[in-house]
Computed example of a mutant assay.
Amino acid sequence: MFAAAASPPPPSTASTRNFRHPPPSRDLDLLLLLIGAALAALSAAVIYIVLQYRSPIYTVTEFAARGMNLTSPAPISPQFDVTVGVLNPNRKIGIHYLKESFVKVYCGGEILGLGVLPHFYQPGESATSVRATAGSFAVLLDGAVKTELSSAQRCGRVPLVLTVEAPVKFKWFVNTREFTAKAKCDVVLDELSDKAQIVSQRCDTDLHFPA
């Protein structure tokens, strides 16, 4: 009489537990990151080398100040109405200035006003003027800053700093990815009033490529 054959052992699941494939999301994220970096580098090369990109030229043409009472110990609520001329010197490159563009006004490293710039498109080889209002509420000026401003106003030379930070896209045949354009303008006014005149101004620009 033959003995009954032994039943085969149940299949082991240990191997499936020990050799699971890692989720593909990490590899996909890394691939997308590398592709993004390559596209950024390619965009930079096309803009600078092929199209011979030149930075826009900014000029502060109007700068009115309100609410700058330097004799009162109470907090102030300054407001600055500024007009900036923008020249795009590039023949083949248009510039889209996107939303979330900001302008700030400083004195002695202390911020006096913050405002939003309008979004617009500027064709190549064109000039336009952009107006913005930068303000703050209940600012308590540092004593040293207040003294500096009072002394400068008596001399008719009040130094202020205007900064612009704007996300932009460049247009050639197609739109590029987004970059960040920055400008810093050193402005000297004859007084802090709504009738202030610009004594001197100088703007420097910079273009930041995404990481």
Rank of each mutant, 00 (worst) to 15 (best):
R91Y: 13
E100N: 15
G113D: 11
E100V: 13
S72M: 05
P89A: 03
Y121A: 04
T59W: 08
T59S: 11
L140Q: 15
L117D: 06
E125G: 01
E62Y: 10
P75L: 07
G36V: 00
C107D: 12
A127T: 12
I93K: 06
S43C: 11
S55Y: 00
E125H: 04
A44K: 15
V84H: 09
S77P: 06
S136C: 08
G115F: 08
F120Q: 03
P73S: 07
T83I: 01
M68N: 04
L117R: 05
E110V: 10
A41V: 10
A41T: 12
L117S: 02
V139T: 14
N69L: 07
L42M: 12
E100A: 15
L42W: 15
E62R: 11
Y58R: 03
V46T: 08
G85M: 13
A132V: 08
N69I: 08
Y48C: 07
E110A: 07
G36M: 07
Y106L: 11
G135L: 08
S72R: 09
V105N: 13
V82E: 13
V50A: 15
P89V: 02
I95S: 01
S55G: 00
Q122H: 07
G109H: 05
Q79V: 11
I95T: 11
I95P: 09
I57V: 14
V84W: 02
R66V: 00
L140S: 15
L114N: 13
L114I: 09
V130T: 08
G109T: 01
A127E: 12
T133N: 06
F120N: 07
T71V: 03
R91D: 14
L141P: 14
A40D: 13
P56C: 05
Q52M: 02
A64I: 01
S55M: 09
S136I: 04
T59M: 04
K92T: 10
K92W: 15
G94E: 06
I95D: 02
